[in-house]
Amino acid sequence: MEYHEKTPIEDARKYKLGDVIYITGEMILARDEAHKKLLDEGAPINLKGAVIYHCGPVVTKKNGEWKVVSAGPTTSIRMEIFEDEFIEKFRPAIIVGKGGMGERTLKALQKYGAVYTAYTGGCGALAAERIKGVKNVYFLDELGIPEAVWVFKVEEFGPLVVTMDAHGNSYYDNVDEKAKKNLDAILAQI
């Protein structure tokens, strides 16, 4: 299935592994430091039904306006230590990153009805093309550009592939299992 969604997202339980989503509306950027900060101090905006993006962008400021130059996903597994608590506390609907996440996040996705989606790693320019502006930025002075909480205005941001759904399924488990079998077969022939 292909979905073209507007934020906030009301029902993330409908998405299945392999579904492709394009987002129009807002995406909120949060990496390691931002997760920690929001968990410690609370979020400056309502994150219910939000799309959270693991990303440290390249941005420039021209004539007082932020311009997003390149903004692909960062490796999500680093956020595994925060994400379950983050989902429980703020109830976002879609997490966007690369490489997938672990067992703790998968359980939280199931419990609170959210999904994890993968955006193609390295595709910073393509992402920037779909980012139409910066609505706001929080904690910029304290955390710096890559770690600040950016609120991006986006149009048809994607393709986001659902790789961990709200029913306890992880696409990565299937790929890993197959790859392990392939590895054993290859090693046996060397």
């Binding site: 990303c55 130059v69 390149s70 193609t120 390295g122 595709c123 910073g124 320019a125 920037a128 093309e129």
Partner: peptide
């Protein structure tokens, strides 16, 4: 992505 990057003279990856 690399087509957009070249056209807009943007870094292909952040």
């Amino acid at each position: 992505n690399f087509t957009v990057a070249k056209k807009g003279s943007l870094p292909m990856c952040q």
